[in-house]
Amino acid sequence: MSGETINLTLRVWRQDGPDSQGGFENYQLNGVSTHMSFLEMLDVLNEQLIESGQESVAFDHDCREGICGTCSLMINGQAHGPDKATTTCQLHMRRFNDGDTVTIEPWRATAFPVLKDLVVDRGAFDRIISAGGYVSVNTGNAPDGNAIPIAGAKQEVAMDAAACIGCGACVAACKNASAMLFVSAKVSQLAILPQGQLERSERVISMVSQMDDEGFGSCTNTSECEAACPAEVSVTNIARLNREFLRASLCGRE
């Protein structure tokens, strides 16, 4: 573990807009407290940039407590940085050493175009969800919470899939920029529960076809997504997605 403060060289991807070229800029940042989170460190960098009349670095963030999935960043070649099961906002600067050079890049996928600097457009995920990642409850009051019995073990499995925060690290880390882990989590959480049965077949077919239309890659079962996922969503869900897809293709309505 390093001392209380460290000095870093930051190699940050800067890009003015979706159509501009972009490139790396180096910044020296001294006296970074090791108790800071990675995003706080970027806040300090931005203050320094603003004070010296430069434009601040754009990056995505919201909750800063690992639940919203807004933060991203490829840190030294790893999605959400070096720790497992950790989002960028929860990554601490004590994971870095004095004198380190830290390379910071945006998620890279054709389906996630860079909007500015480190911010990418993850609208593709929203469109996949709109394609089928929901259950329709068309009428009446909210049903009673315990009206439909669900076995505890099933709840657990569904909950593990529902832990996905939609951050896109799986796409970012995958050599194929495949969105299978995300889509499988969203398909699984509903396929397992009784509430999801009604739209079960249509859901998986539409979500997979939307995923393909968005231009994500094809899964090679490399499991890099699972290792990068801050919510520890397992690739077993991908197998479930494959089963759901087969079942729907073979037995569902056309």
Binding site: M74, G77, R108, T110
Partner: peptide
């Protein structure tokens, strides 16, 4: 499928490490 995946990442990372 390889072509699909190549198209899906038109720009490569400057640095890329595995977490496995």
């Amino acid at each position: 499928t390889t072509a699909m995946s190549r198209r899906a990442r038109s720009k490569q990372y400057a640095q890329n490490e595995s977490k496995q």
